[in-house]
């Protein structure tokens, strides 16, 4: 039903993004673009609600066991958290720029900014996994029943770690999905799929990446900074 084809129709030598015809059931390219954007916004709403559940659990247990939470957050290195915050902010900037690049038809810059965003995402995951999760887990600061850190002073510290790993883990999964999507964008950009007349996917993934970023902006102070 959709008319996405990679091989030019006979005689049509225009670039892909100009040749691009919207799916049959849309009246125009603009209609399709609006629909995609609206759909992505709804998806973002679901993401916010998903994390709302985690924030809610955080609030409840912070109230129930303030000691455990204060102790727990002391174990987090705010510098690593801050580094990740900066990295994500930077990547939000580059992905926003890449949308602009697509609109302007600057394919070289588009590819550069997408690649840069992927690198930022990867850096985020490395810091999270290698410098935060790994040493903590090996020290026994694991969630729930796997908690074996000998110097805990509050009996409810495992709950803190449970919430910490759930919240950051679900977030990191989102980062990972984002990396995959942006890599896909990069490949398509490389094939010349995007340009001023067609950049739906860049816009959509860009919006998604922003929400991943915004959620981190909330997680960072709640987990690392408040004691």
């Amino acid at each position: 039903m959709s008319s996405i084809t990679s091989t030019p129709a006979s005689g049509d030598t225009r670039p892909y993004h100009e040749r691009y015809k919207p799916a049959d059931h849309f009246r125009s390219r603009d209609d399709e673009f609006d629909a995609v954007k609206f759909g992505v916004w709804l998806l973002l709403a679901t993401e916010v609600l998903l994390f709302a559940g985690l924030f809610c659990a955080y609030a409840v247990f912070r109230m129930l066991y303030p000691e455990a939470f204060a102790n727990g957050s002391h174990h987090l290195n705010w510098k690593l958290g801050a580094a990740n915050t900066v990295i994500l902010l930077l990547s939000s900037f580059t992905i926003a720029t890449s949308i602009h690049n697509a609109q302007k038809g600057q394919i070289g810059w588009l590819k550069f900014n997408l690649a840069f965003t992927v690198l930022c995402g990867a850096a985020f995951l490395v810091i999270k996994g290698v410098f935060e999760y790994y040493p903590k887990l090996s020290a026994g600061k694991a969630p729930g029943i796997f908690f074996s850190y000998p110097f805990a002073t509050d009996p409810y510290e495992p709950i803190w770690w449970g919430i910490y790993y759930c919240a950051t883990g679900v977030h990191a999964t989102h980062v990972f999905v984002g990396i995959c999507l942006i890599t896909w964008l990069f490949i398509r950009a490389h094939k010349g799929h995007f340009g001023p007349t067609h950049y739906n996917a860049v816009e959509g993934v860009g919006l998604y990446w922003h929400i991943v970023d915004v959620i981190w902006i909330f997680l960072f102070p709640l987990l690392y900074l408040i004691h």
């Binding site: 659990a57 247990f61 129930l64 066991y65 694991a142 969630p143 729930g144 029943i145 796997f146 009996p155 409810y156 495992p158 709950i159 770690w161 449970g162 919430i163 790993y165 759930c166």
Partner: peptide, 12 residues
């Protein structure tokens, strides 16, 4: 993982 959020035995 027994994170203890909902399980009363673990403080949930």
């Amino acid at each position: 993982f027994g994170i203890g959020i909902f399980d009363p035995n673990l403080g949930g």
